[in-house]
């Protein structure tokens, strides 16, 4: 293809140098963590006072990440099965369907999302913190 001299096209890319004097708009240094948005899908929380042990969350989980297990904690006396959900975070995809189908609205997301452990078994997460204790500000998606 024939070369045609394009003075403007050759010089205007250097205007990018003007950005070197601007304040960065990405990460600050020293780094400040960015708070997650309200409603971010972080860890699950389960209000044991209201969890009915129905197992709807286990049934709808498409990754089979939820097991219903027995615990020693105080649970809702009306819990039909005496079981509460335990979530395998190695399988969970954070779709939130379990929260959609939770009849008593006991299951919710909180916005915390960082967890590091060398123990793989610790990723079998038991969301038993009460929503008020956890300070959960996540908004559960609307019920289908």
């Amino acid at each position: 293809m024939a070369w045609t001299l394009d003075i403007k096209g050759l010089t205007q890319p250097f205007s990018a140098l003007g950005h070197s004097a601007r304040k960065p708009h990405t990460l600050d240094y020293p780094r400040r963590p960015t708070p997650p948005a309200k409603g971010y899908r972080g860890f699950h929380v389960n209000n044991l006072d209201t969890c009915a042990g129905c197992g709807n969350c286990q049934d709808i989980c498409m990754n089979e990440a939820i097991d219903m297990i027995q615990v020693d904690d105080d649970i809702n006396p009306k819990n039909a099965s005496g079981l509460i959900p335990r979530i395998d975070y190695g399988r969970c995809c954070w779709c939130g369907l379990c929260i959609d189908v939770c009849g008593p609205d006991s299951l919710a997301f909180e916005t915390d999302y960082i967890y590091v452990s060398p123990d793989p078994n610790s990723f079998l997460y038991l969301p038993k913190k009460r929503a008020d204790e956890a300070g959960a500000d996540g908004e559960a998606p609307q019920q289908p």
Binding site: M1, D6, K8, G9, L10, Q12, P13, S15, A16
Partner: peptide, 15 residues
């Protein structure tokens, strides 16, 4: 317009 100057209007990119 900043992208135009650096990318879409850049003679080297067009070439």
């Amino acid at each position: 317009p900043a992208y135009d100057r650096v990318f879409f209007g850049n003679a080297a990119v067009r070439k």
